[in-house]
Design a protein around this nucleic acid. Structure first.
Lengths: 262, 262
DNA sequence: GATCGCAACTCATCTAGACGACTAGGTGTT
DNA sequence: AACACCTAGTCGTCTAGATGAGTTGCGATC
């Protein structure tokens, strides 16, 4: 391992107050920042780091765990620890629901991903009627039951987003919206065809670490937060016609918004 | 510790493939979800968990570290491990830069926090001219130097946001904008007085785990991501007159946007 | 040539124990 | 009353080692 024999990771300061495992993490972090290790590169193995720094196994592992928690590296059982590669990001612009984007045959996700050169896919489709959670119910006028549309989006085989749309039954039941594939332009196009002219959307963004279930569904590595986005669609009567609850892998997205100055 | 003696944390399944420390974390997580432990409650000490589950210290610590990484608990040296209390959140609405909000004497941050019943504060004020980073320079028309305004915002004594505004010198130099306190309505009010009528803003949002430096400045607990928000202000000529780079403690914010359907 | 199996290397989990540092509360002194 | 000190309890750091499990490459076998 050249990075080790040449000493380019640096060495510890025995006088420092800083814990040894933090110093080791610092050295490795600096080496990554400096470009000594690049995206996808394998770090020295635990054994090599133990010998290089002259510390015990736990100390090295603590250092690596720290870096994992920062999302800087990922460890792969039986293979090694790697500098985390940055996945392609989806840019979500604030005009992404503009009517003019709704004219096409495919869903916005597919069109956009194709344009970006990625392989898009949608799976885990589920469409069913159910009892809404209180937050959803309140937004939709407290119906007893709603139509829930669940789906998971993948980019180049990697899950990036898990979304559930909730719609009142008086709007969605018996329409293409209640079908697994609602047709060209997605459910917003169908809503407008059904006479619910969309006026605007409200989005609320929260950010946190994922629950174990979210880690599983989105196959998240350690140190990757999730973006919890709740979007409400309003028609021209001011009625909320859809609530969309989305969990996104934070490293796969850049959200972009345009705000008026007035 | 009642939660232990009554067995309300649950027990391990020795047959399970799931690692013991994960099972312990699961049990504690369930107990928190169930309300057995509430916000701010102290968890059983490591020693108590060791005895309760019959495992070694490292195993218990691994479990607790897992929960810390999820942002569920915080450990306090010498005191114990506590269910993480949720701080008051700042809601940022998409009309927060509307002209009508700019008429008041105090800064938007102070007004808004006062209204929410929190104690706001701003510190770490720094205003100076410097060489812009490439991303900033590009946005502002590649000037050699820019005015940088740095400040840190606190809510009830806790740092929640660290922001830097960059402005071209031909706009800001020698104006109140170059003063530590730019006066009522903030720099956007001053920009408009100087004839730069603001037209709109563009915000870009990225989410990730904090760097060690960000952990220090924002005093972030383990398991708290940051929101990296970059806002660009455009005047009515389409010129970018300010770039504002902000790092926010993710648990202190809810971002809210209104999107047009057209 | 294809396949199987083994060995070497990797990280994952767990144990047992030691010492350090911080906190909180009580004790005793000033 | 204020202060210094001690002590028990807590988490933080580190060591040394054992065992398990996933990955990879190579050689032997078919």
């Amino acid at each position: 391992m050249a990075a080790l024999s040449s000493g380019s990771i640096g060495s510890l300061d025995p006088m420092s107050d800083r814990a040894v495992f933090r110093q080791i993490a610092d050295r490795i972090r600096e080496a990554i920042d400096r470009g000594t290790f690049r995206e996808g590169d394998k770090l020295p193995s635990e054994t090599e780091l133990i010998e290089y720094f002259g510390v015990s196994r736990m100390t090295v592992r603590n250092a690596l765990q720290l870096l994992q928690g920062e999302g800087l590296v990922v460890s792969e059982h039986g293979r090694g620890v790697y500098v985390r590669p940055r996945p392609p990001v989806r840019r979500l612009a604030s005009d992404r629901f503009a009517r003019r984007h709704r004219e096409q045959g495919k869903s916005a996700f597919i069109v956009e991903a194709d344009a970006a050169g990625s392989h898009p896919a949608v799976d885990s489709l589920e469409v069913k009627e159910e009892r809404p959670a209180p937050e959803v119910a309140t937004r939709l006028g407290s119906p007893h039951r709603v139509l829930a549309r669940r789906r998971r989006y993948l980019l180049d085989g990697r899950p990036v987003e898990f979304a559930t749309s909730y719609l009142p039954l008086d709007i969605a039941r018996g329409t293409p919206i209640a079908q697994p594939n609602p047709g060209p332009g997605g459910i917003y196009a169908r809503l407008e065809e059904l006479g619910h002219r969309l006026d605007h959307f409200e989005e609320e963004i929260r950010v946190r670490m994922p629950s174990p279930q979210e880690v599983k569904v989105l196959q998240l590595a350690a140190g990757i937060p999730v973006i919890h986005l709740v979007r409400i669609a309003f028609d021209s009567d001011g009625r909320a016609v859809e609530v969309c609850d989305t969990i996104m892998a934070a490293d796969a997205y850049v959200l972009s918004y345009r705000l008026p100055a007035t």
